[in-house]
Design a protein around this nucleic acid. Structure first.
Length: 365
DNA sequence: GTATGCTTTCGGC
DNA sequence: TTACGGCCGAAAGCATAC
């Protein structure tokens, strides 16, 4: 059975939400920014609307540089409000979910869906559903999105990329290679700059070239699993299923220090608010963790982590304070540079499901 | 050899 | 000229057990 897979992507999401909230800014360059608080304009652009992109402003760009690019162009620089976008995202995901068989959220502004059953394998019928989803989101939230349909997640993702902004791209199984063969490998889902560079060294630049590449050669450079995935994805044949996401697998909080430090204790002191936030997340989600990590981003912007896994689940972050201090001191010992940003990650999570505990007690004396 | 568990890094948005 | 966040999930890399 040929699958019918879709990918939906909200256009320049954070900035578009801001435009909907304040339509008078439409037509001007808009950049939604993360201000780190270190200096007045330290931080990066999270999302820019298309007007701002015309001037070369894009995600991850330092705010000061973006401001320079937009000088004299009447720009709007907006502080990112993540909870606002989360609320909008949640409503949109439910709208979309009601039209498809399965919806897999893949970040705050995108999702994969499976329409194999709903469309009975027919791409035309799936295209009608996709148009309906786009309409519903436009009417309900005034937001535009891009949708791609294809025979696999990798193809659907490429299709939605090519539909940006605001379009619908349908790639039938027959047209898969014609559609993506000439695209660069870097366009493939899961292929970042690093992988592109390695592939380049192997003389592989396009998806068609990757599709023809020798799998055992790829294995030497990427390991078995990634090599098989790359090859399958390039052939439009990856069988990665669309699955409803379960609970998050990690929580983390990371902050930028006012000034760099080599002092682990100083780093810890700056993290009390982040730790409190993580503690309340554990409580509100009735979740425990087993792995605790200290994260440091050094002056040269490289990332270092040290972690510790406990034998039993930990419900209260405060009882492992000493362990955290230990991890940070390990980091400061191994790092030959200063900390610029520091953070805490909790992973290996498990939820205390009330239903499960009830079930456990059934039949107990 | 395969399975499993833990640590660290990577890539995406 | 330089400039620089805060998350997430996945998997590579390594060790150990069988």
């Amino acid at each position: 059975m040929v699958r019918v897979i879709g990918h939906i992507d909200l256009d320049y999401f954070f900035a578009q939400v801001e435009e909907v909230e304040n339509p008078s800014i439409k037509g001007r360059p808009v950049a939604v920014c993360v201000f780190s608080g270190r200096t007045k304009d330290s931080g990066v652009v999270s999302t820019a609307n298309y007007k701002a992109r015309e001037f070369g402003v894009k995600s991850g760009m330092p705010i000061v540089l973006a401001k320079r690019r937009l000088e004299g162009r009447d720009p709007i620089m907006i502080r990112m409000e993540i909870t606002k976008y989360e609320a909008v995202s949640e409503r949109i995901m439910e709208l979309a979910r009601s039209h498809v068989d399965i919806l897999e959220e893949a970040g705050i502004d995108e999702a994969f869906f499976d329409l194999t059953i709903g469309s009975r394998g027919d791409f035309n019928s799936a295209a009608s559903v996709a148009r309906k989803i786009k309409e519903t989101i436009l009417e309900g939230e005034r937001l535009t999105c891009s949708v791609g349909l294809g025979r696999s997640k990798a193809v659907a993702k490429l299709a939605s990329d090519s539909a940006k902004p605001g379009g619908l791209m349908v790639v039938s199984p027959d047209s898969t290679m014609a559609f993506m063969g000439s695209l660069n490998v870097g366009n493939l889902y899961g292929v970042g700059p690093k992988t592109v560079k390695t592939l380049e060294g192997l003389g592989i630049g396009t998806i068609a070239e990757l599709a023809r590449a020798d799998v055992s050669l790829l294995q030497d450079y990427f390991g078995r699993k990634l090599a098989l995935y790359l090859h399958a994805a390039a052939n439009g044949e990856d069988d990665d299923p669309v699955e409803e996401r379960q609970e998050p697998t990690q929580f983390s909080r990371i902050i930028t220090l006012k000034s760099d430090t080599t002092d682990a204790e100083e780093a810890m002191n700056q993290l009390t608010e982040a730790a409190d936030d993580l503690r309340s997340r554990l409580i509100s989600r009735k979740t425990s963790f087993r792995t605790l990590s200290a994260i440091a981003i050094l002056t040269n912007l490289s990332t270092k982590t040290r972690s510790k896994t406990f034998e039993t689940p930990i419900w209260d972050l405060s009882i492992v304070k000493n362990a955290l201090a230990d991890l940070f001191s390990q980091l400061s010992d191994s790092a030959d540079r200063e900390f610029r940003r520091v953070g805490i990650r909790l992973s290996d999570l498990s939820a205390n499901s009330d239903q499960k505990s009830l079930a456990e007690y059934v039949g107990e004396p």
